[in-house]
Design a protein around this nucleic acid. Structure first.
Ligand code: FES
Ligand code: FES
Lengths: 144, 144
DNA sequence: TTTTATTCGGACAAAAAAGTCCTATTTTGG
DNA sequence: CCAAAATAGGACTTTTTTGTCCGAATAAAA
């Protein structure tokens, strides 16, 4: 469904959100440990997210990653997915035709489109704050 | 969503179904042309599908691929996807946790599960015959 | 000012997915 | 039987994804 990079990106961002909500900044090492991801690879993904202004990175001692608290509920899962995997999952044809086009549909188009639109809806409406709250309260988990 | 191999596999199988429904057997070359896929790579995928008894392969002159007409409506998209990509798309966690478990859910589990189950439903209920009919009647297309 | 803890970024390495090529095998028509 | 036409399958190559390493840049603390 999502690439590994995107999975790590989502989990990392949620973890940063959890800690930012407690006014804590978190280091790469802390992130990689909490989401159980390869550290150096995670660094690359965090760089992408920082360049896209989804997270904020701070260099030097006591540096790390954070997200402005007030933005938490405005950042959607879709922002992260789009930054890492692009929007093919929303827009692309499920059978790989060059474009998904109602007027030239592939055999699964009409059924597939529903599922894809539900996924898009999910990603576009789910915000970081609620995801972070669930993790904080032990309702959901980022690893194992 | 699906691997390239799986996309080719689905399209190839639908095309074989179209022709089988007209009591024709079709060659690798014919398939690759009609679904616009790399021939040698498509051959590998057809071998997999033949080993899984989803399609029937016939060697030698006038050989090719076919599907028993009476089976067309009993073969589901899910059979093809499972044979090529496995069942991770049905069963796996959307964020890559080692397993998708209600009792230890990832942050997107409850929303994601709905979409995933809809996809599973779609794949498990869509049969080859109806897909082939749509292509035959010009309602849907296998290439471009 | 120096040391230390941190991210950044480029180059590299490994693994997986996608794709190619060639020979062997099978089948049928001549 | 022999030649031709087809799939089977193993070895190989290319591309993409995933992952590692290390030095440079930065910022705070000592
Ligand atoms: S054309 Fe294939 S999903 Fe729309
Ligand atoms: S635990 Fe992640 S989708 Fe179920």
């Amino acid at each position: 469904m999502f690439s590994k990079a995107c999975e790590y990106g989502i989990k990392a961002t949620i973890y940063i959100a959890v800690r930012s909500n407690e006014d804590k900044r978190v280091s790469l090492k802390g992130i990689a440990n909490h989401i159980d991801s390869p550290e150096a690879f995670t660094a690359k993904i965090l760089q992408m997210l920082a360049r896209e202004n989804i997270i904020l990175s701070v260099r030097g001692i006591n540096g790390g990653f954070e997200i402005e608290k007030s933005r938490l509920e405005h950042i959607k899962l879709a922002d992260i997915v789009k930054a890492i995997d692009g929007d093919n999952i929303y827009k692309g044809c499920g059978l790989g035709l060059s474009e998904c086009n109602e007027l030239h549909p592939c055999p699964v188009h009409f059924e597939f489109k529903k599922v894809r639109d539900d996924l898009r809806e999910l990603l576009e409406t789910t915000n970081l704050k609620s995801l972070a709250m669930d993790v904080s309260s032990g309702v959901s988990f980022l690893r194992i």
